[in-house]
Write a protein that binds this DNA or RNA. Structure first.
Length: 650
RNA sequence: GGGGACGUAGCUCAGUUGGAUAGAGCGUCCGCCUCCUAAGCGGAAGGUCGGCAGUUCGAAUCUGCCCGUCCCUACCA
């Protein structure tokens, strides 16, 4: 627990005790952040809450409380403001001293494992901007959880036997008349994920023009499921190659996975068969004997929706005996909690450059060294909001099986889709109707090959950043400039995807996404770079960083922090953990982005107003140096949670 | 028809459990590099928080009704 929290809690307890002793009331003491920083560090609206009970005006109660509360360590004074607010001001010198000495309470290590499933891209074509939102949200949430001390397992589900893969496989076989060997060769010589992007658009169009060709899809699905023959072989080749491409794209963004559970193993290792038994046994589903779902196994609508009637039952097993996606998802969700009574086998998929290993499910014997995957105590599924109905069905399945605790711990971490602005559509050559042109955003079709490919976008961002870096640092070696440009590009991209709250539809616009000014990743990175430049300059002058603990007395801190400007920056920097906790509690990575931006803003103002190295007063200079150092550490830590690097220079 | 999300400045969006004078970025206009990097800083203009009613000492926030936009409502995933 950080110093800020310690003070907050101390205040709550003191006020709570006083209320109980003086007035005999037991109510939770709300503590808020004042509207304006000039009001102090914390505010208590307690007098408003008490006004009714005590039949006295809030202001009078506030005055009584302010006068009667016994001193609280760390709190300088409590003032009455407005109609009855109690504004609390910290003892600045003491607070700074606490930060300097690292005063905090160690929180107990969290038990249990949290599983976060994200990315989940169909392995049939290149990743696009919408997939990036999923992965960046998921990855940032994972980093937030880990930063708070949780143990987290990252799963990326691979639907390698679904319709989307089958369509591309069918295209290779029926449209292009390619053998598995030829596809294998293509993978070597082509930008394969891009190739499939276009091929998928081609076969989608072909199906549209020749409805009878849809028979290819069924044929292909059958071949893939049987696992025998050339078509099945193409299926493996396509899915594996595309997964490799996706992981490479995500690695550019600093996104890693622990395990890739695949649909093929859900089928081959009879996960579904087992789940089916359970569902039948506990009567979570029933065999429909009449109506539109005759011959299907269905889950009654009442299980997942209060308003649902007979009509709204969800088909789990089709009348031809095949299982729907939701059925497989129920089996998968059961496995995640260790409730299925079956496990995958695993083999190493790849080792990342940093040594981290990612494993993949297999139906062969397990390779040695596989970590114990699954058996999570909480499961977060990062899936777009359009699928909330299906996620509800999955959770209802768990509940119907009697696993209500796990059902409650199944969290659909939903987010809205990414669309394109009309201007960006025009830039991409996508035809628009007059109606579309007037809309703020347009949802485009991946089936038609429309959209912004992730690697294209990253490439453009890097090119733009490179231009800036080149013009500012022409003397720096080329590979280094390139690395810095990539860090800036990724910073811009991740920040862009994180600054919107989850339920905001993002209207992607090239002009906006390629901006490096204002509320952007590079703005925040720049503030960190500026702070580091000051410290580096100091070192270049042959001056070591002062021993702050020895040089800065409580008195010196108090004297210098009497300056409102200094105090506000220090306070804001000290709230990094508060921001993290708030973001975690609300499940909003956007709060991290907001905080990072505000902190950067505070520092940029400070940087502009005070020349640290030129400061002649020794005590003040030392305080400014310490604040610069502390700010940098706090901002860097915050950016790290967002997966954003601080470049060496900008 | 049913379910869900949303409507806040010209544009894109924040807004904790209802609280003090509703915020930011972009855009527009006006300024600031002899000084640790101007990817920066300062200032100005810009609002009936979709509408109406209600609850409350107090509503952008809660409730109801209405208007508008989007998503879902497959034996696709």
């Amino acid at each position: 627990m950080t110093l800020f929290h310690i003070l907050e809690r101390r205040l709550q307890q003191a006020v709570s005790r006083h209320l109980s002793e003086r007035y005999g009331v037991e109510i939770p003491v709300a503590v808020e952040q004042p509207k304006q920083s000039s009001f102090g560090e914390l505010a208590l609206p307690i007098a408003f809450q008490l006004a009714k009970q005590l039949r006295q005006p809030p202001k009078k109660i506030a005055e009584q409380l302010a006068g009667e509360l016994s001193p609280i360590p760390g709190v300088a004074r409590i003032e009455v403001a407005g109609n009855g607010y109690l504004n609390v001001r910290f003892d600045r010198g003491g607070y700074a001293g606490g930060l300097l000495s690292g005063e905090r309470e160690v929180s107990a290590p969290k038990s249990g494992k949290i599983i976060v499933e994200h990315t989940n891209i169909n392995p049939n074509k290149a990743a696009h901007i919408g997939h990036l939102r999923n992965a960046v949200l998921g990855d940032t949430f994972v980093r937030m959880l880990r930063s708070a001390g949780h143990s987290v397992e990252v799963q990326n589900y691979i639907d390698n036997t679904g319709v989307q893969v089958a369509d591309v496989v069918a295209a290779f076989h029926y449209l292009e008349h390619k053998s598995a060997a030829e596809v294998r060769e293509l993978i070597e010589i082509e930008r394969f994920d891009y190739y499939c992007w276009d091929l998928y658009a081609r076969i989608s169009q072909h199906y549209k023009d020749n409805a009878e060709a849809l028979a290819w899809r069924q044929e292909t699905l059958h071949s893939i499921e049987s696992g025998e023959g050339d078509i099945a072989e193409i299926g493996h080749l396509v899915a594996d190659a595309i997964v490799r491409a996706h992981l490479a794209t995500m690695l550019r963004l600093g996104i890693y996975y622990d395990v890739l559970p695949r649909e093929s193993e859900i089928l081959h290792l009879k996960f579904w068969a087992r789940a089916f038994e359970l569902l039948k046994e506990r009567q979570a589903i029933y065999f429909e004997t009449g109506g539109k779902n005759k011959g299907c196994w269905v889950m009654p609508g009442a299980a997942f929706s209060e308003q649902a009637g007979e009509e709204d039952s969800k088909v789990i097993v089709r009348s031809n005996g095949t299982v729907t996606y939701v059925g497989k998802d129920i089996a998968y969700q059961l496995w995640k909690f260790g409730l299925l009574g079956r496990d995958f086998r695993y083999r190493r998929w790849m080792v990342y450059p940093n040594g981290h290993e990612v494993w993949v499910s297999t139906s062969e014997a397990s390779q040695a060294g596989a970590p114990p995957f699954g058996r999570g105590s909480y499961v977060y599924n990062v899936i777009d909001s359009r699928q909330s109905y299906l996620q509800d069905v999955v959770v209802a399945g768990l509940r119907a099986l009697g696993f209500s605790e796990q059902a409650g711990r199944s969290i659909h971490f939903s987010y809205e889709m990414v669309t394109l602005t009309p201007a960006t559509c025009v830039e991409l050559g996508i035809e628009l109707t007059d109606e579309d042109r007037r809309r703020p955003y347009v949802e485009v079709s991946g089936r038609k090959g429309q959209g912004v490919k992730a690697d294209d976008l990253i490439g453009r961002l890097i090119a733009d950043a490179c231009q800036e870096v080149d013009s500012r640092h022409p003397q720096a070696p080329e590979p280094e400039r390139r690395r810095v440009a990539a860090q800036i590009a990724i910073g811009a991209l991740r920040f862009f995807l994180l600054k919107y709250t989850r339920n905001a539809v993002i209207a992607f616009d090239f002009q906006e996404a390629l901006s490096f000014e204002g509320e952007t990743g590079p703005y925040v990175q720049y503030a960190a770079v500026r702070a580091r430049n000051i410290l580096r300059k100091l070192a270049e002058r042959g001056e070591p960083l002062p021993d702050f603990n020895r040089e800065l007395s409580a008195g010196a801190m108090a004297r210098q922090l009497a300056s409102e400007d200094f105090w506000q920056l220090l306070l804001e920097a000290s709230r990094a953990e508060v921001a993290l906790e708030r973001a975690l509690a609300s499940g909003e990575p956007a709060h991290m982005a907001k905080y990072a931006f505000q902190l950067a803003q505070a520092f940029n103002t400070f940087y502009h107003d005070y020349h640290v190295l030129a400061e002649e007063n020794r005590e003040r200079r030392t305080v400014l140096l310490w604040m610069t150092h502390y700010f940098h550490a706090q901002l860097e830590r915050t950016l790290e949670v967002m997966g954003i690097d601080v470049p060496e220079y900008m």
